[in-house]
Nucleic acid binder design. Structure first.
Length: 918
RNA sequence: GCGGAUAUGGUGUAAUUGGUAGCCACGUCAGACUUAGGAUCUGAUGCCGAGAGGCGUGGGGGUUCGAGUCCCUUUAUCCGCACCA
């Protein structure tokens, strides 16, 4: 029999499906292991070879864990709500549900060909009402809870209402949008609408008037992580700042817990760092500056209270709430003009013009509480409304932005820290001794900061405070293709639907764009209201809503009573291994953690962190190929000869190029204009040029895994993708090496069948050398899998076959088949059955098949003389350092190199490595 | 600007974590079998040198008996954040 991968793969994929080989159930008698991939958004372009990279890695790990005796949950589904399907719908009028279903079917077909061990009975789709019922349910929960800062957890909003009724805001320490103060009497006097306005300030899902990233081209708002360089991530349209009423999630309430939680996670340091930066905790002082002619004081936040003696002016953001009060009549025109200008500038322009200094004086003056000097208050857009208090104390000597501003407006610059030359630039470093600073003069900066925290508090002009850069997540999108909010309005007061009214299904519409009045598409739906006629919310939830808790739903996907049953949750707990792209660092991976912590607070899930270990696979880039057309002709010249002609570089479909050699026939057929193409060859071949570019249709470098599966088989694709290099590294897709991996699988097959296809396996005893090779390989491969070093484990397989040579011995080959099964499941399954097994190779167990390793009793170590490696020597493992020293010195080889001179020093480390100094 | 990562043959990469640099492949060259080869098998293949030998992990410096690995410095590339007070 030949290695007919097409027949083998089709046969086993069918068998697995029919036998339900990959179906898993809760089984308390076995330890669980949960391996999860980030589920894909089913785009119209289908899968390319980059998508399966992570899936292959996680599949190998799942299969490996299963062989180790774990009950492995390894599900897959689709993140099916999203912008592209809706954009497509607006253009073509096709309902997103239709195109999404088509795309999903295509994805499924492609995935099935690669032989993944997914339990498809647990599939979820975020656009399925049975699924988004639980997304809506979670939203309702967030709406009806607030965050208690003392208990550090979410609590029912009724408890807060009770506190208000009893004592007003006295004693309440809760996460909120703006600090509030009222008494129980005042609370009692409020009507329902007023009370709701107060509660919106505390609810974890709430409505607020905020500055949002508005994308006019898409007709919707976007989250911060959906905007890159002032352009929308999807589509690259300009984004502007706009004040709008939006739903938000109070993720900031969980900032500290999300920061602390990182400590115990097995995530890469770089990813944790990204999240830490995104949360952006900084310790500083909240301080109040008296303003001349005003009773109230201007509040600022600073991380450098030590520099307060150097404060010579103040700056507020153009959006600051006191802007009118602080602007004097003679300055009003200029200030209003400035604010109007800032509003016009898009986010993108602001970023581009970071270096440009602009601003205008309000005319008001504040008083520096430590120097007593009057200092002017300016407005400038370098101060952001959304961070801190939207106002700063400016220390031009020690902050480069304040410095630039002071220079531009000719303001005073007073140095208060020794160490820099402030004649040309500010001295920003947090080091040096204080000068010109009253009672803190002479102190070190760090000491001075601490002293000032106390001093500020003592004088009652402020206090130490922790500030986060993290913002609350804007949760509404003015779009159609998303989860509807389970919200209706009475007199503009929002109310949630009750749980038994869920899901609130997305109604059908004919037109998917915004209405003429600029309202979301749901405004077109007649009867989009409760039975009593109260209107439903018109916007829908953002993309991250559906992906925030999907890992929980996989545990119990068909439960109509709960998101996940207690039994399923307590067994599967959380994800042991999560594999996916790093691009979700500040989006999905933040929101999921928040969502999970919230459900944890409510007691619905038993783990506070959703993803224990996370591996980020690298991106696969495209490797484009070029042909060189002689200008003005239909002649194409090979890469090495193109310098002799004037040529034009043309992208050519990489699927008709092999090892950079063009398939001439295929090229002529590729496009009608090339039918009569002529070629100038080198060495009888047409060699193409190449470049690494993003994988994209327009560069003809998209490689569809189907082609690879067709030409080499799924097992080859799986192994080759892993062989390409370390999983976490980005790398170009390059099929130049794929033959090597395919050849390996054929050689493996060749251990069972000779070249005439005759079965040749014997029960002959293996030699010690063969056993040593086998066990060395088992050890290495298992270690590598545990470390996600799949490329080196494949190398280990290759070394193994090289060392074994032609070794058709059952004793050797059988364990090898099990060992390779996670990587190449189809061929392994076929060979496993060839060996006479009835059950799937997936049900084999390592302890039974891959017995203990051969214990090594000695090892060869290099010996160097004066640091130069000279010879090798074998020592028993249990030899002591002194014995090794004696043995080395007695060795004739050592005597040759030392030339009889007595060694000054012999270095033995852990009985392992030796160097002789003479 | 701040933070993080990476740099090794013609190519992808490996290195027992401080111990023979280049494993395993691709490619190339040579040979075998073949009507043929984009099949298979065998061998060679870091660079310089005829050779002995020398030089070699982006550059420079250091620690060490010994450095791809640790420290300092510098350059280049990639990623994240970015007027965050």
């Amino acid at each position: 029999m030949e290695y007919d991968f097409r027949a083998i793969e089709a046969k086993w994929q069918k068998e697995w499906r029919e036998r339900g080989t990959y179906k898993v159930e809760v089984d308390p008698s076995r330890p669980k292991f949960y391996v999860l991939d980030m589920f894909p958004y089913p785009s119209g372009a289908g899968l390319h070879v980059g998508h399966p990279l992570g899936y292959i890695a996680s599949d190998i790990y799942s299969r490996y864990k299963r062989l180790c005796g774990f009950n492995v949950l390894h599900p897959m589904g689709y993140d099916a709500f999203g912008l592209p399907a809706e954009q497509y719908a607006i253009q073509t009028g096709q309902h997103p549900a239709v195109t999404t279903t088509q795309n999903i079917n295509r994805y499924r077909e492609q995935l099935d060909k690669i032989g993944f061990s997914f339990d498809w009975s647990r599939e979820v789709r975020t656009c399925d009402p049975e699924y988004y019922k639980w997304t809506q349910w979670a939203f309702v929960q967030m709406f009806s809870h607030y965050y208690d800062n003392v208990e550090q957890k979410a609590r029912p909003i009724e408890e807060l209402i009770a506190k208000f009724a009893a004592n007003g805001t006295e004693g309440v320490d809760a996460a909120c949008t703006a600090e509030m103060k009222f008494t129980a009497e005042e609370w009692a006097a409020k009507n329902e609408q007023e009370r709701e306005q107060v509660l919106q300030n505390y609810r974890l899902a709430f409505r607020a008037d905020t500055m949002v990233n508005w994308c006019p081209a898409l007709g919707t708002v976007l989250a911060n992580d959906e905007v890159k360089d002032g352009l929308s991530e999807r589509g690259g349209h300009p984004v502007e700042q706009k004040r709008m009423k939006q739903w938000l999630l109070r993720v900031t309430a969980y900032a500290q817990r999300m920061l602390d939680g990182l400590e115990k996670l097995e995530w890469s340091d770089s990813l944790k760092e990204i999240q830490r930066n995104w949360i952006g905790r900084s310790t500083g002082a909240q301080m109040f500056f008296a303003v001349k002619g005003m009773e109230e004081k201007l509040e600022i936040f600073t991380t450098r209270p030590d520099t307060v003696f150097g404060v010579t002016f103040m700056v507020i953001a153009p959006e600051h709430q006191w802007i009118d009060r602080l602007t004097t009549d003679e300055n009003r025109a200029a200030v209003e003009e400035y604010i109007a200008q800032t509003k016009k500038r898009s986010e993108r322009e602001r970023i581009a013009e970071t270096k440009r200094v602009s601003g205008v004086a309000t005319g008001s003056y504040a008083v520096n509480p430590f120097t007593g000097k009057e200092i002017p208050i300016y407005v400038s857009d370098y101060v952001l409304a959304g961070y801190g208090t939207g106002a700063i104390m400016a220390v031009p000597a020690h902050d480069s932005r304040d410095y630039a501003f002071a220079r531009h407006f000719g303001l005073e610059i007073v140095p208060v820290v020794e160490g820099g030359d402030i004649s040309k630039e500010s001295y920003d470093a947090k080091a040096g001794a204080m000068i010109n600073s009253g009672f803190i003069t002479g102190m070190d900066v760090k000491e001075a900061i601490e002293v000032m925290f106390d001093e500020v508090e003592k004088r009652g002009i402020g206090r130490k405070r922790i500030n986060y850069r993290l913002r609350d997540a804007i949760f509404s999108r003015q779009r159609y293709w998303g989860e509807p909010f389970p919200i209706y309005y009475k007199d503009d007061v929002p109310y949630t639907l009750s749980v038994d009214q869920l899901p609130l299904e997305l109604p059908a519409v004919k037109d998917f764009g915004p209405t003429e009045q600029g309202e979301p598409p749901l405004a077109r739906v007649e009867g989009w209201c409760t039975e009593a006629g109260e209107p439903f919310e018109l916007s829908t939830m953002p993309g991250f809503a559906g992906s925030s808790a999907y890992y929980l739903r996989y545990m119990d996907p068909h439960n109509s009573e709960a998101l996940v049953s207690r039994e399923a949750d307590e067994y599967w707990r959380n994800v042991d291994l999560y594999v996916g792209g790093i691009e979700h660092a500040t989006g999905h991976l933040m929101y999921s953690r928040f969502w999970n912590m919230f459900l944890y607070d409510l007691g619905y899930v038993c783990e506070d962190e959703p993803f224990k270990k996370l591996v980020n696979q690298g991106m696969i880039q495209g490797r484009s190929n070029f042909v060189y057309r002689v200008v003005g002709t239909n002649k194409f010249v090979s890469l090495g000869l193109r310098d002799q002609y004037e040529t034009q570089e043309i992208h050519v479909d990489v699927n008709i190029v092999r090892n950079d050699v063009l398939d001439l026939e295929a090229f002529r057929k590729w496009r009608p204009e090339f039918v009569d193409a002529e070629f100038i060859l080198e060495d009888g071949k047409y060699v193409c040029g190449w470049a690494i570019e993003k994988m994209s249709k327009s560069m003809f470098n998209v490689v569809n895994p189907d082609y690879i599966v067709e030409a080499y088989g799924a097992d080859t694709l799986r192994m080759y993708e892993m062989f390409l290099g370390p999983l976490e590294q980005s790398k170009p897709w390059d099929t130049n090496g794929i033959d090597g991996v395919h050849k390996f699988l054929r050689r493996l097959w060749g251990l069972f069948y000779d070249r005439f296809g005759e079965y040749k396996l014997t029960d002959e005893k293996a030699t010690p050398a063969e056993l040593k090779t086998l066990h060395k390989t088992i050890k290495k491969v298992r270690e590598d899998i545990e470390n996600f070093s799949f490329n080196t484990s494949i190398a280990a397989f290759m070394i193994c076959l090289n060392e074994l040579g032609d070794c058709p011995k059952r004793e050797i080959v059988e364990p090898l088949v099990v060992l390779i099964a996670p990587f190449a499941p189809h061929i392994a399954e076929e060979l496993w059955h060839t060996l006479g097994h009835e059950t799937s190779v997936c049900d084999a167990k390592y302890p039974e098949v891959c017995a203990e390793y051969l214990v090594e009793n000695s090892h060869e170590y290099p010996v160097s003389i004066n640091g130069k490696m000279r010879f090798k020597k074998e020592f028993p493992l249990d030899m002591s350092n002194d014995e090794i020293t004696a043995a080395v010195l007695a060795d004739p080889a050592a005597q040759k190199w030392t030339e009889g001179r007595a060694p000054k020093k012999v270095i033995v480390v852990k009985g392992k490595i030796i160097n002789i100094v003479i």
